[in-house]
Every structure is written in C-alpha cells, then in structure tokens.
Design a protein around this nucleic acid. Sequence first.
DNA 1: GCTATGACAAGGA
DNA 2: CTCCTTGCCATAG
Length: 124
Amino acid sequence: MSKFKDSVLKAVSLVPKGKVVSYGQVALMVGIPRAAIQVGWVLHESGDKVPWWRVVNKKGRISTTCLEHDANMQKVLLEQDGVEVSDKLMVDMCIYRFIPEENFLDKLNLDDEYIQMLMDKYGI
DNA sequence: GCTATGACAAGGA
DNA sequence: CTCCTTGCCATAG
C-alpha cells in the first residue's frame, strides 16, 4: 500500500463525529494539495474501513457517482452524526467544516515545514 | 514511460 | 446555488 493511501485513510479516520471535510482538505493533510480526486478514489476502495461519509466536495455536496442509494446512505449516516443534510444532498460547510489543528497534523507525520506552509497559506 | 480515467477544485456564466 | 470548462495527479493498462 502506498504512503498516499495510508495517509488518506489515517486522515479520514481522524475526522471527528459531527464534522465534515472536503476532499481538497484531506489532500492538503496528506501533503498533496491537488490530489483531491485521488482521495475519493482511495475512499472508494476503502469502503467501510473509514468514515468516508464525512468527506464531501468543496461545495459541501455529496458527490458519490456510484449509485444513488450510496448518496442517500451517506445522507443518513451524516444525519446520524448530527450533521444536517439538505434535500439536495448539501451540507453547510460554514457550520460543519472540520478545521484541522496543529496536533491533528502531527499525527499524519507531516514535515514541520509543510505545516508552516499550511498555516501561513490557509491560516489553519 | 505514455495515455486514459476519475467519490475533485477553482473560477466564470 | 447549479452547470460547465480547465487543471491536477495517483493508478491502471
């Protein structure tokens, strides 16, 4: 298993209940800011190993292209976490967006230099 | 090593 | 907010 997949799984598994993250955020956490689409690819493979339903696209919309019932299942799972999902499968990112903290990033074995770059660039 | 693919992001309409 | 286009990058073949 590549380091990329391992990091993605670890990052997603650390997302707290009641919060959601975008694929782009996860990509940032694993050190590859523009590999958001690969994150989704890894989650698709992982299935039940991680809380994949806490990951949505940047607009806060559930974007599983698999089957419709999967998207609906994600909606139910999010609601079980206490996250409100609109009838159009939208989540209010302003409220539920999970903002990673420094100690959170430490768990992902990121370089201090990279963490500084994130804080400097995104004000984390 | 090169091309095609895709649970995406960002920006414009 | 939704839809469309362009750009990114790890994998698969």
